[in-house]
């Protein structure tokens, strides 16, 4: 799937099925010691770090589109604005802490975060076979082919379609996707 927002698109290979999925990639794209931090509003900050997102700002790598977190991961920001926080907490410079005790208060930047969109392209393939048709789709499809109605489930493999042998193995026409 493609995830992100207008300033940052990434492709992620999803693992899982139905409505439960995840990915193996580490989306941490920057970590550095905070060198300057200012709380500029009730839910906004301005901060700088001694490490920068590699090639940040280049085309599809808009730093302001990425998700910044505190070292403990409790606070998330995008474009300097809070997007998630512990319930009932107020923003102050103290939310950035040295969570791992290494003597450095770090910020972390992730490629995507809460509030970003994930887009999974629909991919439907129907091909002729000697016995009729084969279909493969990553979403449920209700369709008619040559006037014959099909109701297909999502599948990772090919589904054979041969409704009563009425479909002759001809080039497919008239694909009409109902849903």
């Amino acid at each position: 799937m493609v995830a992100g927002n207008s300033g940052r698109h990434i492709f992620l290979h999803l693992l899982g099925s139905a409505t439960s999925f995840g990915w193996e990639d580490d989306l941490l794209v920057q970590q550095g010691q905070i060198t300057d931090l200012h709380v500029t509003g009730p839910d906004t900050i301005a901060l700088t770090s001694d490490q920068q997102v590699f090639s940040g700002g280049s085309g599809n790598r808009k730093v302001e589109a990425m998700t910044v977190t505190t070292e403990d991961g409790q606070w998330h920001f995008r474009g300097g604005r809070v997007i998630t926080k512990p319930l009932g907490s107020a923003l102050n410079s103290g939310v950035f802490t040295d969570a791992n005790g290494d003597g450095r208060v770090d910020m972390k930047t992730y490629e995507i975060g809460v509030g970003d969109h994930a887009t999974l392209p629909v991919d439907i393939t129907i091909q002729r076979a000697s016995f009729g048709w084969q279909a493969k789709s990553n979403v449920p499809v209700r369709a008619t082919i040559n006037g014959v109605f099909f109701n297909l489930l999502a599948s990772t493999g090919w589904l054979n379609l041969s409704p009563d042998g009425k479909i002759a193995p001809q080039p497919p026409t008239g694909l009409r996707i109902v849903k």
Partner: peptide, 14 residues
């Protein structure tokens, strides 16, 4: 022998 559709966000009529 193959009909294929890839749509980024939603299905469309043929």
């Amino acid at each position: 022998h193959q009909l294929r559709d890839t749509s980024p966000d939603h299905l469309r009529a043929a």
